[in-house]
Amino acid sequence: MEPKPLILILLLISFISSCSAPKYVPKLEEVPFSAYGSHIEIKQLSGAEIEGELIAVDSKTLFVLTAADSIKKLHNLPVSDIEKFKLTYAQPKSYAWTIPVYTLSTVSHGYFALFTAPVNAVVTSVVTARGANAFTYNEQVMSYEELSKFARFPQGIPPKIDRASIR
């Protein structure tokens, strides 16, 4: 394999490997028992990006708990300001290892590696990318009403709770 494609594959692997969700996002088998809200990444119309635990959703506002530099802070984001979101409800399964392993295994294919190496690289990259996005929803498949099911407080933030004390 030539150096350029190899570098691209290594970059892709490192990129995809870095796509794991925060620790409070449960493993797939623990999803029914998780007490936390799902992880949400939001891009606002202004271009600003924010990510954190989805705390609650009402008809006009999303409440997201961010944790920059270990300082947790609750943000109120007007729904009208949101361009798109990506919700991750379970830790993705990583298939990044299959890209180098499968692709390099084609060295035993001789001339055929010319075709099997790219096919392996493409298929494993697609599998890895889809694996990384398997447990996610976005604004195209989920409404804000449905989004509330994945919040820490699907009923909305209880009125007696001091919002600043939410951690």
């Binding site: 797939l28 088998e29 999803v31 029914p32 379970a90 399964k93 298939y95 299959t98 499968y102 295994s105 084609t106 035993s108 294919h109 055929f112 099997t116 096919v119 392996n120 298929v123 494993t124 599998v127 889809r130 694996g131 398997a134 447990f135």
Partner: peptide, 23 residues
């Protein structure tokens, strides 16, 4: 949540089978 990885594992399994056969 069950069988969420079936398709991916099946794809990798088939690919591995083809790779082994050619190898």
């Amino acid at each position: 949540l069950e069988g969420t990885e079936k398709k991916r594992i099946r794809a990798l399994g088939i690919l591995a089978g083809v790779d082994v056969a050619i190898g």
